[in-house]
Simulated assay, not measured.
Amino acid sequence: MTDAFTSVRLLGPPETDGEYIALSEHETVHLHEYTRIYAVPGLYEHVVQERLRCTSPQVAAEGFLRAAEGLGLDPGSMTVLDVGSGTGLVGELVRRGGVARVVGVDALPAAREACLRDRPGVYDDYVVGDFQHPDALRAALRPYGLGGLVSAGAFGGTHATPRALDNALALLPAGAPVAFTIDERWMDESDPDGFGAAVERLVSDGGLTVLERTRFQHRVTTTGEPIFYQLVVGRTE
């Protein structure tokens, strides 16, 4: 364990409204209190990546790179949109995989601040915005000539809705590789407002071809129980 975080403890029940972390004897925050967590360099990665063993960034990045390779595209000539960029781990991973340029988007100004502090130079631009309300984002992103999309855990639940996914995909040209991970609870196709139904609509309407759809362990909870997500890899049409 990193010496700087020896006092950090993971908390579950009897907390009744989710997962918590104790930053010190005097401060406890919700796991999704991102603004507070991002304010401490390295804390998010320590808790989520190391302690809770989150794999979504690696799974999403590798899925995207497989899709690009399978479609015969050169990552070194691509500009990729990273939705829900957070502190920049996904962007860093796809850049390591050979992607030339990455543009990040996150709804939280604190995420942008943390990324520019901890991973300067990963993104060609990092835009604060919400794909629920995409007009300003369209204007900001249009000059980049986006050629693909990657996202780790940004869609679903209290994050972005199926409308946000539709709006993000609408920025891409036909034939662009896409990879995103999402909690399997939001992929129930019987829910007409869920992501499972949204993906099926995209497929049936001819907007997306699904190349892969696999289940994987996203992370564990603060009490050690597994959380499963799905990886969706596709190509815009």
Rank of each mutant, 00 (worst) to 15 (best):
T79W: 06
T79V: 13
T79P: 02
V80E: 03
L81T: 07
L81C: 10
V83R: 04
S85I: 05
T87S: 15
G91W: 01
E92Y: 12
E92R: 14
L93V: 12
R95Y: 02
R96F: 07
G97F: 06
A100N: 12
R101F: 14
V103M: 04
D106C: 13
A107N: 05
C115D: 07
L116K: 08
D118F: 03
R119K: 14
P120T: 10
V122F: 08
V122A: 08
Y123H: 10
V128M: 13
G129Q: 14
F131T: 04
Q132Y: 04
H133L: 13
D135Y: 04
L137I: 04
A140Q: 13
L141Q: 10
R142K: 14
P143L: 00
P143I: 01
Y144G: 10
Y144H: 15
G145C: 07
G148I: 08
G148L: 05
A154S: 12
A154I: 02
A160I: 11
P162F: 03
A164Q: 08
D166E: 14
N167T: 07
N167W: 07
A170F: 03
A170S: 15
L172P: 00
L172W: 01
P173A: 09
P173I: 05
A174Y: 03
G175D: 08
A176W: 11
V178E: 00
I182T: 09
R185I: 09
W186Q: 14
W186N: 09
M187G: 09
E189L: 04
E189K: 07
